[in-house]
Design a binder for these strands. Sequence first.
DNA 1: CACGCGTTTGAACGACCAGTCAAGCGAGGC
DNA 2: GCCTCGCTTGACTGGTCGTTCAAACGCGTG
Lengths: 209, 209
Amino acid sequence: MSTPNAKGKDRHQEILDAAARVITDRGLAETRISDIAEQAGVSPGLILYYFESKDRLLSEALTFANDQFYLRMSREIRRIASAREQLRRMIDLSVPGYLPEYGRLDEWALWIEVWVRALRDTEMAKDREVLDQRWRSQIADIVRGGQASGEFTAPQDADELALRLAAIIDGLAIQVIMNDSLVTTERMHRTTMEVAAQTLGFQLEPAAG
Amino acid sequence: MSTPNAKGKDRHQEILDAAARVITDRGLAETRISDIAEQAGVSPGLILYYFESKDRLLSEALTFANDQFYLRMSREIRRIASAREQLRRMIDLSVPGYLPEYGRLDEWALWIEVWVRALRDTEMAKDREVLDQRWRSQIADIVRGGQASGEFTAPQDADELALRLAAIIDGLAIQVIMNDSLVTTERMHRTTMEVAAQTLGFQLEPAAG
DNA sequence: CACGCGTTTGAACGACCAGTCAAGCGAGGC
DNA sequence: GCCTCGCTTGACTGGTCGTTCAAACGCGTG
Protein backbone atom coordinates (compact mmCIF):
# COMPACT_ATOMS: atom_id res chain seq x y z
CA MET A 1 0.00 0.00 0.00
CA SER A 2 2.87 2.37 -0.53
CA THR A 3 3.39 3.64 -4.05
CA PRO A 4 0.44 4.03 -6.40
CA ASN A 5 1.93 1.50 -8.80
CA ALA A 6 2.32 -1.24 -6.26
CA LYS A 7 -1.15 -0.48 -4.99
CA GLY A 8 -2.49 -0.69 -8.52
CA LYS A 9 -0.84 -4.03 -9.02
CA ASP A 10 -2.27 -5.37 -5.79
CA ARG A 11 -5.77 -4.32 -6.71
CA HIS A 12 -5.44 -5.82 -10.13
CA GLN A 13 -4.48 -9.18 -8.67
CA GLU A 14 -6.96 -8.95 -5.86
CA ILE A 15 -9.74 -8.46 -8.35
CA LEU A 16 -8.59 -11.31 -10.57
CA ASP A 17 -8.45 -13.49 -7.53
CA ALA A 18 -11.89 -12.50 -6.37
CA ALA A 19 -13.23 -13.05 -9.87
CA ALA A 20 -11.76 -16.54 -10.04
CA ARG A 21 -13.36 -17.42 -6.73
CA VAL A 22 -16.76 -16.15 -7.79
CA ILE A 23 -16.60 -17.92 -11.14
CA THR A 24 -15.61 -21.13 -9.41
CA ASP A 25 -18.62 -21.22 -7.22
CA ARG A 26 -21.34 -19.52 -9.24
CA GLY A 27 -20.17 -20.26 -12.78
CA LEU A 28 -19.31 -17.76 -15.48
CA ALA A 29 -22.90 -17.28 -16.51
CA GLU A 30 -23.98 -16.29 -13.01
CA THR A 31 -21.08 -14.01 -12.26
CA ARG A 32 -21.97 -10.33 -11.91
CA ILE A 33 -19.59 -7.46 -11.56
CA SER A 34 -21.20 -6.69 -8.24
CA ASP A 35 -20.46 -10.23 -7.02
CA ILE A 36 -16.82 -9.78 -7.83
CA ALA A 37 -16.79 -6.40 -6.15
CA GLU A 38 -18.39 -7.82 -3.05
CA GLN A 39 -15.95 -10.73 -2.98
CA ALA A 40 -13.06 -8.31 -3.31
CA GLY A 41 -14.53 -5.97 -0.72
CA VAL A 42 -14.69 -2.94 -3.00
CA SER A 43 -17.39 -1.05 -4.81
CA PRO A 44 -18.64 -2.16 -8.25
CA GLY A 45 -17.38 1.00 -9.86
CA LEU A 46 -13.81 0.16 -8.96
CA ILE A 47 -13.87 -3.05 -10.95
CA LEU A 48 -14.27 -1.10 -14.15
CA TYR A 49 -11.64 1.34 -13.07
CA TYR A 50 -9.12 -1.51 -13.31
CA PHE A 51 -10.58 -3.47 -16.21
CA GLU A 52 -11.92 -2.13 -19.44
CA SER A 53 -14.93 -4.42 -19.45
CA LYS A 54 -16.48 -7.33 -17.70
CA ASP A 55 -15.70 -9.57 -20.63
CA ARG A 56 -11.97 -8.91 -20.56
CA LEU A 57 -11.88 -9.28 -16.80
CA LEU A 58 -13.50 -12.69 -16.99
CA SER A 59 -11.11 -13.95 -19.62
CA GLU A 60 -8.13 -12.65 -17.70
CA ALA A 61 -9.40 -14.23 -14.51
CA LEU A 62 -9.75 -17.64 -16.13
CA THR A 63 -6.25 -17.46 -17.56
CA PHE A 64 -4.87 -16.22 -14.27
CA ALA A 65 -6.42 -19.02 -12.23
CA ASN A 66 -5.25 -21.76 -14.54
CA ASP A 67 -1.84 -20.21 -14.56
CA GLN A 68 -1.71 -20.43 -10.78
CA PHE A 69 -2.58 -24.10 -10.89
CA TYR A 70 0.12 -24.80 -13.44
CA LEU A 71 2.72 -22.95 -11.44
CA ARG A 72 1.87 -24.78 -8.26
CA MET A 73 2.14 -28.14 -9.94
CA SER A 74 5.28 -27.16 -11.75
CA ARG A 75 6.98 -26.14 -8.53
CA GLU A 76 6.02 -29.37 -6.80
CA ILE A 77 7.15 -31.59 -9.64
CA ARG A 78 10.52 -29.97 -9.99
CA ARG A 79 11.46 -31.04 -6.47
CA ILE A 80 10.98 -34.73 -7.22
CA ALA A 81 13.85 -36.74 -8.68
CA SER A 82 12.30 -39.92 -10.04
CA ALA A 83 10.20 -39.65 -13.18
CA ARG A 84 7.84 -42.27 -11.87
CA GLU A 85 7.26 -40.31 -8.71
CA GLN A 86 6.84 -37.11 -10.68
CA LEU A 87 4.21 -38.84 -12.75
CA ARG A 88 2.42 -40.15 -9.72
CA ARG A 89 2.38 -36.74 -8.12
CA MET A 90 1.08 -35.14 -11.27
CA ILE A 91 -1.72 -37.67 -11.41
CA ASP A 92 -2.53 -37.20 -7.73
CA LEU A 93 -2.87 -33.48 -8.33
CA SER A 94 -4.91 -33.94 -11.49
CA VAL A 95 -7.57 -36.23 -10.10
CA PRO A 96 -10.33 -33.99 -8.75
CA GLY A 97 -10.76 -34.54 -5.04
CA TYR A 98 -7.99 -37.09 -4.68
CA LEU A 99 -5.93 -34.97 -2.34
CA PRO A 100 -8.31 -33.78 0.34
CA GLU A 101 -6.17 -30.74 1.09
CA TYR A 102 -7.06 -29.35 -2.33
CA GLY A 103 -10.57 -28.47 -3.41
CA ARG A 104 -12.68 -30.58 -5.67
CA LEU A 105 -14.28 -28.53 -8.39
CA ASP A 106 -11.89 -25.65 -8.41
CA GLU A 107 -9.47 -25.98 -11.26
CA TRP A 108 -11.34 -28.32 -13.51
CA ALA A 109 -14.60 -26.43 -13.39
CA LEU A 110 -12.71 -23.38 -14.55
CA TRP A 111 -11.21 -25.34 -17.41
CA ILE A 112 -14.62 -26.19 -18.77
CA GLU A 113 -15.56 -22.54 -18.62
CA VAL A 114 -12.39 -21.75 -20.53
CA TRP A 115 -13.33 -24.24 -23.21
CA VAL A 116 -16.80 -22.85 -23.73
CA ARG A 117 -15.51 -19.35 -23.88
CA ALA A 118 -12.62 -20.17 -26.18
CA LEU A 119 -15.08 -21.39 -28.79
CA ARG A 120 -16.13 -17.80 -29.44
CA ASP A 121 -13.57 -15.47 -27.86
CA THR A 122 -10.34 -15.18 -29.86
CA GLU A 123 -8.27 -13.88 -26.96
CA MET A 124 -9.43 -16.71 -24.76
CA ALA A 125 -8.72 -19.19 -27.54
CA LYS A 126 -5.13 -18.00 -27.77
CA ASP A 127 -4.63 -18.18 -24.01
CA ARG A 128 -6.15 -21.62 -23.88
CA GLU A 129 -3.80 -22.96 -26.50
CA VAL A 130 -0.80 -21.63 -24.63
CA LEU A 131 -1.99 -23.07 -21.32
CA ASP A 132 -2.82 -26.45 -22.79
CA GLN A 133 0.41 -26.82 -24.70
CA ARG A 134 2.42 -25.82 -21.69
CA TRP A 135 0.60 -28.45 -19.67
CA ARG A 136 1.32 -31.11 -22.27
CA SER A 137 4.98 -30.08 -22.42
CA GLN A 138 5.25 -30.54 -18.74
CA ILE A 139 3.98 -34.08 -19.07
CA ALA A 140 6.27 -34.63 -22.04
CA ASP A 141 9.23 -33.53 -19.94
CA ILE A 142 8.40 -36.10 -17.32
CA VAL A 143 8.07 -38.75 -20.02
CA ARG A 144 11.39 -37.81 -21.60
CA GLY A 145 13.05 -37.91 -18.23
CA GLY A 146 11.71 -41.37 -17.57
CA GLN A 147 12.74 -42.63 -20.98
CA ALA A 148 16.25 -41.28 -20.47
CA SER A 149 16.58 -42.84 -17.03
CA GLY A 150 15.11 -46.12 -18.22
CA GLU A 151 12.13 -45.88 -15.85
CA PHE A 152 9.77 -45.89 -18.84
CA THR A 153 10.36 -48.38 -21.61
CA ALA A 154 7.86 -47.13 -24.21
CA PRO A 155 9.80 -46.20 -27.34
CA GLN A 156 7.35 -43.70 -28.85
CA ASP A 157 7.80 -39.96 -29.11
CA ALA A 158 7.42 -38.29 -25.72
CA ASP A 159 5.08 -35.62 -27.10
CA GLU A 160 2.76 -38.25 -28.51
CA LEU A 161 2.70 -40.14 -25.24
CA ALA A 162 2.09 -36.91 -23.35
CA LEU A 163 -0.86 -36.11 -25.58
CA ARG A 164 -2.38 -39.49 -24.80
CA LEU A 165 -1.96 -39.04 -21.08
CA ALA A 166 -3.27 -35.50 -21.11
CA ALA A 167 -6.31 -36.59 -23.09
CA ILE A 168 -7.22 -39.43 -20.80
CA ILE A 169 -6.80 -37.23 -17.74
CA ASP A 170 -9.04 -34.57 -19.26
CA GLY A 171 -11.65 -37.08 -20.30
CA LEU A 172 -11.81 -38.79 -16.94
CA ALA A 173 -11.64 -35.61 -14.92
CA ILE A 174 -14.73 -34.34 -16.67
CA GLN A 175 -16.69 -37.36 -15.58
CA VAL A 176 -15.43 -37.04 -12.04
CA ILE A 177 -16.35 -33.40 -11.58
CA MET A 178 -19.72 -34.14 -13.15
CA ASN A 179 -20.20 -36.52 -10.25
CA ASP A 180 -20.79 -39.48 -12.51
CA SER A 181 -21.83 -42.34 -10.29
CA LEU A 182 -19.64 -44.80 -12.19
CA VAL A 183 -16.53 -42.65 -12.37
CA THR A 184 -15.44 -41.84 -8.86
CA THR A 185 -12.31 -40.07 -7.76
CA GLU A 186 -10.75 -43.37 -6.73
CA ARG A 187 -11.63 -45.11 -9.94
CA MET A 188 -10.18 -42.30 -11.99
CA HIS A 189 -6.97 -42.50 -10.02
CA ARG A 190 -6.65 -46.23 -10.46
CA THR A 191 -7.51 -46.15 -14.15
CA THR A 192 -5.17 -43.28 -14.85
CA MET A 193 -2.29 -45.04 -13.13
CA GLU A 194 -2.93 -48.24 -15.03
CA VAL A 195 -3.18 -46.49 -18.36
CA ALA A 196 -0.01 -44.57 -17.61
CA ALA A 197 1.83 -47.77 -16.74
CA GLN A 198 0.65 -49.47 -19.89
CA THR A 199 1.26 -46.47 -22.10
CA LEU A 200 4.70 -45.58 -20.81
CA GLY A 201 5.85 -49.09 -20.07
CA PHE A 202 6.51 -49.52 -16.39
CA GLN A 203 5.40 -51.92 -13.70
CA LEU A 204 2.72 -50.73 -11.33
CA GLU A 205 3.52 -51.39 -7.72
CA PRO A 206 0.53 -52.59 -5.71
CA ALA A 207 -1.64 -49.71 -4.48
CA ALA A 208 -0.62 -48.18 -1.17
CA GLY A 209 -2.80 -48.69 1.94
CA MET B 1 -50.85 -29.98 -39.46
CA SER B 2 -54.01 -31.97 -38.99
CA THR B 3 -54.96 -32.68 -35.41
CA PRO B 4 -53.97 -30.23 -32.68
CA ASN B 5 -51.90 -32.90 -30.94
CA ALA B 6 -49.78 -33.75 -33.93
CA LYS B 7 -49.36 -30.06 -34.61
CA GLY B 8 -48.31 -29.53 -31.02
CA LYS B 9 -45.74 -32.27 -31.26
CA ASP B 10 -44.32 -30.86 -34.47
CA ARG B 11 -43.90 -27.43 -32.96
CA HIS B 12 -42.26 -28.83 -29.90
CA GLN B 13 -39.66 -30.64 -31.97
CA GLU B 14 -39.27 -27.77 -34.39
CA ILE B 15 -38.46 -25.46 -31.54
CA LEU B 16 -35.98 -27.88 -29.96
CA ASP B 17 -34.34 -28.25 -33.30
CA ALA B 18 -34.15 -24.53 -33.88
CA ALA B 19 -32.76 -24.05 -30.38
CA ALA B 20 -30.05 -26.64 -30.95
CA ARG B 21 -29.02 -24.89 -34.14
CA VAL B 22 -28.87 -21.49 -32.50
CA ILE B 23 -26.92 -22.80 -29.52
CA THR B 24 -24.49 -24.52 -31.85
CA ASP B 25 -23.57 -21.39 -33.65
CA ARG B 26 -23.94 -18.64 -31.08
CA GLY B 27 -23.27 -20.58 -27.86
CA LEU B 28 -25.61 -20.96 -24.90
CA ALA B 29 -24.66 -17.63 -23.38
CA GLU B 30 -25.58 -15.72 -26.53
CA THR B 31 -28.81 -17.51 -27.23
CA ARG B 32 -31.95 -15.37 -26.88
CA ILE B 33 -35.51 -16.54 -27.04
CA SER B 34 -36.00 -14.23 -29.99
CA ASP B 35 -33.11 -15.91 -31.83
CA ILE B 36 -34.74 -19.28 -31.42
CA ALA B 37 -38.08 -17.87 -32.53
CA GLU B 38 -36.50 -16.36 -35.61
CA GLN B 39 -34.67 -19.59 -36.44
CA ALA B 40 -37.94 -21.49 -36.08
CA GLY B 41 -39.84 -18.89 -38.06
CA VAL B 42 -42.36 -18.12 -35.34
CA SER B 43 -42.95 -15.26 -32.91
CA PRO B 44 -41.10 -15.06 -29.60
CA GLY B 45 -44.30 -15.43 -27.65
CA LEU B 46 -44.90 -18.87 -29.07
CA ILE B 47 -41.69 -20.24 -27.64
CA LEU B 48 -42.99 -19.72 -24.14
CA TYR B 49 -46.32 -21.17 -25.09
CA TYR B 50 -44.56 -24.50 -25.62
CA PHE B 51 -41.90 -24.32 -22.94
CA GLU B 52 -42.30 -23.16 -19.39
CA SER B 53 -39.09 -21.18 -19.37
CA LYS B 54 -36.04 -20.41 -21.39
CA ASP B 55 -33.92 -22.41 -18.98
CA ARG B 56 -35.92 -25.61 -19.39
CA LEU B 57 -36.01 -25.18 -23.15
CA LEU B 58 -32.24 -24.87 -23.32
CA SER B 59 -31.66 -27.96 -21.22
CA GLU B 60 -34.14 -29.96 -23.26
CA ALA B 61 -32.56 -28.78 -26.48
CA LEU B 62 -29.11 -29.90 -25.40
CA THR B 63 -30.39 -33.29 -24.37
CA PHE B 64 -32.39 -33.60 -27.55
CA ALA B 65 -29.45 -32.80 -29.82
CA ASN B 66 -27.10 -35.22 -28.12
CA ASP B 67 -29.76 -37.84 -28.25
CA GLN B 68 -30.02 -37.42 -31.99
CA PHE B 69 -26.30 -37.91 -32.36
CA TYR B 70 -26.37 -41.03 -30.28
CA LEU B 71 -29.25 -42.49 -32.24
CA ARG B 72 -27.60 -41.82 -35.55
CA MET B 73 -24.39 -43.50 -34.47
CA SER B 74 -26.26 -46.37 -32.88
CA ARG B 75 -28.17 -47.07 -36.07
CA GLU B 76 -25.01 -47.02 -38.17
CA ILE B 77 -23.07 -49.28 -35.87
CA ARG B 78 -25.74 -51.90 -35.64
CA ARG B 79 -25.50 -52.58 -39.36
CA ILE B 80 -21.82 -53.53 -39.14
CA ALA B 81 -20.86 -57.11 -38.35
CA SER B 82 -17.20 -56.98 -37.35
CA ALA B 83 -16.35 -55.44 -33.99
CA ARG B 84 -13.20 -53.94 -35.43
CA GLU B 85 -15.14 -52.25 -38.16
CA GLN B 86 -17.73 -51.06 -35.67
CA LEU B 87 -14.95 -49.54 -33.63
CA ARG B 88 -13.41 -47.87 -36.62
CA ARG B 89 -16.74 -46.40 -37.65
CA MET B 90 -17.39 -45.16 -34.14
CA ILE B 91 -14.02 -43.44 -34.11
CA ASP B 92 -14.57 -41.94 -37.56
CA LEU B 93 -17.83 -40.45 -36.34
CA SER B 94 -16.32 -39.20 -33.09
CA VAL B 95 -13.37 -37.32 -34.52
CA PRO B 96 -14.60 -33.79 -35.19
CA GLY B 97 -14.34 -32.97 -38.86
CA TYR B 98 -13.02 -36.36 -39.93
CA LEU B 99 -15.98 -37.18 -42.11
CA PRO B 100 -16.51 -34.14 -44.29
CA GLU B 101 -20.18 -34.95 -44.75
CA TYR B 102 -20.77 -34.18 -41.09
CA GLY B 103 -20.20 -30.79 -39.50
CA ARG B 104 -17.24 -29.92 -37.39
CA LEU B 105 -18.25 -28.15 -34.21
CA ASP B 106 -21.78 -29.38 -33.97
CA GLU B 107 -22.05 -32.22 -31.52
CA TRP B 108 -18.95 -31.64 -29.47
CA ALA B 109 -19.53 -27.96 -28.94
CA LEU B 110 -22.90 -28.85 -27.52
CA TRP B 111 -21.32 -31.37 -25.20
CA ILE B 112 -19.14 -28.72 -23.64
CA GLU B 113 -22.19 -26.58 -23.07
CA VAL B 114 -23.86 -29.55 -21.42
CA TRP B 115 -20.92 -29.96 -19.10
CA VAL B 116 -20.89 -26.36 -17.97
CA ARG B 117 -24.58 -26.39 -17.39
CA ALA B 118 -24.60 -29.72 -15.61
CA LEU B 119 -22.29 -28.29 -12.97
CA ARG B 120 -25.17 -26.20 -11.61
CA ASP B 121 -28.42 -27.51 -13.09
CA THR B 122 -29.64 -30.71 -11.45
CA GLU B 123 -31.92 -31.71 -14.30
CA MET B 124 -29.12 -31.25 -16.79
CA ALA B 125 -26.78 -33.21 -14.54
CA LYS B 126 -29.16 -36.16 -14.53
CA ASP B 127 -29.61 -36.08 -18.29
CA ARG B 128 -25.88 -35.83 -18.82
CA GLU B 129 -25.20 -38.89 -16.74
CA VAL B 130 -27.73 -40.90 -18.69
CA LEU B 131 -26.36 -39.76 -22.02
CA ASP B 132 -22.75 -40.39 -21.03
CA GLN B 133 -23.37 -43.81 -19.56
CA ARG B 134 -25.35 -44.85 -22.60
CA TRP B 135 -22.49 -43.74 -24.80
CA ARG B 136 -20.00 -45.73 -22.75
CA SER B 137 -22.26 -48.80 -22.84
CA GLN B 138 -22.35 -48.62 -26.56
CA ILE B 139 -18.57 -48.71 -26.65
CA ALA B 140 -18.58 -51.50 -24.07
CA ASP B 141 -20.90 -53.53 -26.28
CA ILE B 142 -18.50 -53.22 -29.17
CA VAL B 143 -15.65 -54.26 -26.91
CA ARG B 144 -17.54 -57.25 -25.56
CA GLY B 145 -18.44 -58.30 -29.09
CA GLY B 146 -14.82 -58.15 -30.12
CA GLN B 147 -13.66 -60.06 -27.09
CA ALA B 148 -16.23 -62.77 -27.76
CA SER B 149 -15.28 -63.07 -31.42
CA GLY B 150 -11.59 -63.02 -30.62
CA GLU B 151 -10.99 -59.81 -32.57
CA PHE B 152 -9.80 -58.10 -29.39
CA THR B 153 -7.40 -59.94 -27.14
CA ALA B 154 -7.38 -57.61 -24.12
CA PRO B 155 -8.58 -59.60 -21.11
CA GLN B 156 -9.83 -56.69 -18.96
CA ASP B 157 -13.42 -55.88 -18.15
CA ALA B 158 -15.21 -54.40 -21.17
CA ASP B 159 -16.66 -51.54 -19.14
CA GLU B 160 -13.25 -50.52 -17.92
CA LEU B 161 -11.84 -50.60 -21.43
CA ALA B 162 -14.80 -48.61 -22.70
CA LEU B 163 -14.23 -45.97 -20.06
CA ARG B 164 -10.63 -45.58 -21.20
CA LEU B 165 -11.60 -45.24 -24.82
CA ALA B 166 -14.41 -42.81 -24.08
CA ALA B 167 -12.07 -40.69 -21.97
CA ILE B 168 -9.37 -40.45 -24.57
CA ILE B 169 -11.89 -39.60 -27.25
CA ASP B 170 -13.36 -36.85 -25.10
CA GLY B 171 -9.98 -35.47 -24.20
CA LEU B 172 -8.71 -35.37 -27.75
CA ALA B 173 -11.95 -34.11 -29.25
CA ILE B 174 -11.81 -31.09 -26.99
CA GLN B 175 -8.41 -30.14 -28.32
CA VAL B 176 -9.55 -30.63 -31.88
CA ILE B 177 -12.64 -28.45 -31.65
CA MET B 178 -10.56 -25.84 -29.85
CA ASN B 179 -8.50 -25.74 -33.03
CA ASP B 180 -5.31 -26.57 -31.21
CA SER B 181 -2.52 -26.26 -33.73
CA LEU B 182 -0.84 -29.44 -32.51
CA VAL B 183 -3.94 -31.61 -32.33
CA THR B 184 -5.45 -31.77 -35.77
CA THR B 185 -8.35 -33.89 -36.90
CA GLU B 186 -5.98 -36.30 -38.62
CA ARG B 187 -3.70 -36.60 -35.63
CA MET B 188 -6.61 -37.31 -33.34
CA HIS B 189 -7.81 -40.02 -35.66
CA ARG B 190 -4.42 -41.68 -35.86
CA THR B 191 -3.78 -41.43 -32.13
CA THR B 192 -7.22 -42.74 -31.24
CA MET B 193 -6.83 -45.72 -33.52
CA GLU B 194 -3.41 -46.54 -32.11
CA VAL B 195 -4.58 -46.24 -28.54
CA ALA B 196 -7.60 -48.40 -29.32
CA ALA B 197 -5.41 -51.06 -30.87
CA GLN B 198 -3.04 -51.07 -27.93
CA THR B 199 -5.82 -50.94 -25.35
CA LEU B 200 -8.03 -53.62 -26.86
CA GLY B 201 -5.29 -55.78 -28.27
CA PHE B 202 -5.53 -55.94 -32.02
CA GLN B 203 -3.20 -55.31 -34.92
CA LEU B 204 -3.60 -52.02 -36.74
CA GLU B 205 -3.65 -52.44 -40.49
CA PRO B 206 -1.68 -49.77 -42.33
CA ALA B 207 -3.71 -46.57 -42.83
CA ALA B 208 -5.82 -46.46 -45.97
CA GLY B 209 -4.76 -44.15 -48.86
C1' DC C 1 -1.84 23.11 6.33
C1' DA C 2 -3.46 23.25 1.64
C1' DC C 3 -3.05 21.53 -2.88
C1' DG C 4 -3.03 17.85 -6.40
C1' DC C 5 -3.84 13.59 -8.06
C1' DG C 6 -4.62 8.77 -8.16
C1' DT C 7 -8.15 6.00 -6.07
C1' DT C 8 -12.70 4.89 -4.57
C1' DT C 9 -17.55 5.40 -4.11
C1' DG C 10 -22.41 4.56 -5.22
C1' DA C 11 -26.21 6.66 -7.48
C1' DA C 12 -28.09 7.04 -11.96
C1' DC C 13 -28.64 5.76 -16.86
C1' DG C 14 -29.82 3.00 -20.51
C1' DA C 15 -29.81 -1.31 -22.91
C1' DC C 16 -31.41 -5.63 -23.06
C1' DC C 17 -34.53 -9.40 -22.54
C1' DA C 18 -37.52 -13.06 -20.21
C1' DG C 19 -41.94 -13.56 -19.52
C1' DT C 20 -47.06 -11.75 -19.82
C1' DC C 21 -51.22 -10.78 -22.00
C1' DA C 22 -54.98 -9.13 -24.71
C1' DA C 23 -56.22 -9.44 -29.06
C1' DG C 24 -56.42 -11.84 -33.62
C1' DC C 25 -56.60 -15.99 -36.59
C1' DG C 26 -58.36 -20.09 -38.72
C1' DA C 27 -59.73 -24.91 -38.90
C1' DG C 28 -63.42 -28.00 -37.71
C1' DG C 29 -67.91 -28.89 -35.89
C1' DC C 30 -72.75 -27.97 -35.87
C1' DG D 1 -72.30 -19.34 -41.94
C1' DC D 2 -71.22 -18.84 -37.30
C1' DC D 3 -69.13 -20.39 -33.08
C1' DT D 4 -65.46 -22.45 -30.40
C1' DC D 5 -61.12 -23.24 -29.07
C1' DG D 6 -56.45 -24.03 -29.62
C1' DC D 7 -52.68 -21.64 -31.79
C1' DT D 8 -50.17 -17.47 -32.79
C1' DT D 9 -48.87 -12.78 -32.58
C1' DG D 10 -46.15 -8.80 -30.97
C1' DA D 11 -46.42 -4.91 -27.98
C1' DC D 12 -45.58 -4.13 -23.23
C1' DT D 13 -43.70 -4.59 -18.48
C1' DG D 14 -40.58 -5.25 -14.88
C1' DG D 15 -36.32 -6.34 -13.49
C1' DT D 16 -31.55 -6.98 -14.03
C1' DC D 17 -27.14 -5.60 -14.98
C1' DG D 18 -22.98 -3.30 -17.43
C1' DT D 19 -21.17 1.02 -17.67
C1' DT D 20 -20.69 6.04 -16.69
C1' DC D 21 -19.78 9.91 -13.88
C1' DA D 22 -19.55 13.53 -10.60
C1' DA D 23 -18.28 13.84 -6.21
C1' DA D 24 -15.51 12.50 -2.14
C1' DC D 25 -11.41 10.64 -0.10
C1' DG D 26 -6.76 10.52 1.53
C1' DC D 27 -1.88 10.25 0.86
C1' DG D 28 2.30 12.55 -0.23
C1' DT D 29 4.46 16.88 -1.22
C1' DG D 30 5.82 21.56 -0.80
